[in-house]
Amino acid sequence: MARITIIETGQVPQKYRERHGSFPDMFERMVRAEDPTATIDIVSIPNGDALPDPDKVEAILITGAAAGVYDGLDWIAPLENFVRKAYANKTPMVGVCFGHQLIAQALGGTVRKSEKGWGIGRHVYRVLPENGVVDGDAVAIAASHQDQVIEPPNGALTILSSDFTPHAGLLYANGTTLSVQPHPEFDVDFARVCCELRDGKAADDLVATAKASLAEPLDNAKLGGAITRFLARRKKT
């Protein structure tokens, strides 16, 4: 039975939280869709929770956030140290969006705001054949980001890619760390909220196209299931 520690790094705006839940709520739904028996522990950085001992967690999932990993906030460096220790321990670990960028930066990659602007709505990512984690040729998942991993850490294999996001999914050299830019925890309704939040911040036609793209199906179960199974792998010694 998997025991997953979800590290909440950002919060759903209060006006949307009652209907859609927190980011850990969304991830818990994603995990339980694949493994109803999973045990979920939540550590909330915005609520002031201390990071757990990296030697005592079985699996780690780091959420998205509005912050940038390069913002110099006082909790980012300790979280990077936590990631490096968990990585050295070969503890199963997954990061999504901000979590993807944070893991990449902590392990020596480069993250910055992309000149391509906002990535919102339904994005389709090519899947690297025979990567051992995600099956099929492509996955369609909701995105909501400006920042991107520009250069992956040494030894990290890009397993999801698109023209907009060349390094959208990374499998790291230790074999027990995975990170993805898009959001398999976002249902269509919340993905639409993320588009609406860009009204006035992104071009009107981009927002309209992103909203329209969500009429097509999302492969949340496929990627979310792959992430859950990855986290349930036995810790490597």
Rank of each mutant, 00 (worst) to 15 (best):
S22A: 08
T176W: 04
A104K: 03
A208L: 01
D205E: 05
E130K: 13
S162H: 00
Q146F: 13
D135G: 08
T37F: 10
I120L: 14
N220L: 04
A2D: 02
R17C: 09
G119R: 08
Y70P: 06
D205C: 00
T237H: 13
A221Q: 08
P54R: 13
I45K: 10
V207A: 05
V57M: 12
V57I: 12
D204F: 11
P153H: 12
E28R: 14
P129T: 12
G121Y: 05
V124T: 13
L231G: 00
L171E: 05
T209D: 12
A2F: 10
I60Q: 00
P13W: 01
N89A: 05
A33E: 07
Q101A: 10
F190H: 01
D25K: 08
T176N: 12
I159H: 15
D53L: 15
A138T: 09
T91G: 04
D74K: 10
A67S: 06
F82L: 05
V133W: 07
R19V: 13
A232L: 01
E58V: 03
A226L: 06
S144D: 12
T158S: 12
A106I: 11
T237E: 12
A140N: 01
L157E: 12
D219I: 11
R32C: 03
T177G: 06
F190Y: 08
A138W: 01
L223N: 00
I150N: 02
I227S: 04
N81P: 08
T91S: 03
L231M: 01
R122D: 14
Y16G: 03
T110Y: 14
I6R: 02
G175N: 09
Y125E: 11
I159L: 14
C97W: 03
S44P: 07
P46C: 13
D147E: 15
P217F: 09
V94C: 10
D205S: 14
T9D: 14
L218D: 12
T228P: 00
L61G: 00
D199K: 14
E115Y: 06
T209W: 00
P217M: 10
A156K: 10
K85E: 09
I150E: 15
V111N: 03
G224Y: 15
D137H: 09
Y87A: 04
L231Y: 02
L79H: 04
A168M: 11
E80P: 01
P78D: 11
D74G: 06
V207L: 05
L107A: 09
T5I: 03
S213K: 13
A88F: 09
Y172T: 09
L102Q: 07
I40K: 01
T228L: 04
F23T: 04
A215V: 01
H100K: 12
P184G: 09
E130T: 07
A77N: 14
L223I: 14
N154S: 07
L73P: 07
L51W: 10
D74Q: 06
L157G: 00
E196S: 07
M26K: 04
F186N: 07
G99V: 11
K15R: 11
K15S: 10
K235A: 15
R29Y: 14
A173Y: 12
K211F: 01
K222W: 01
E185D: 06
A65T: 05
E28F: 00
N154H: 07
T177N: 09
T209L: 03
G109P: 07
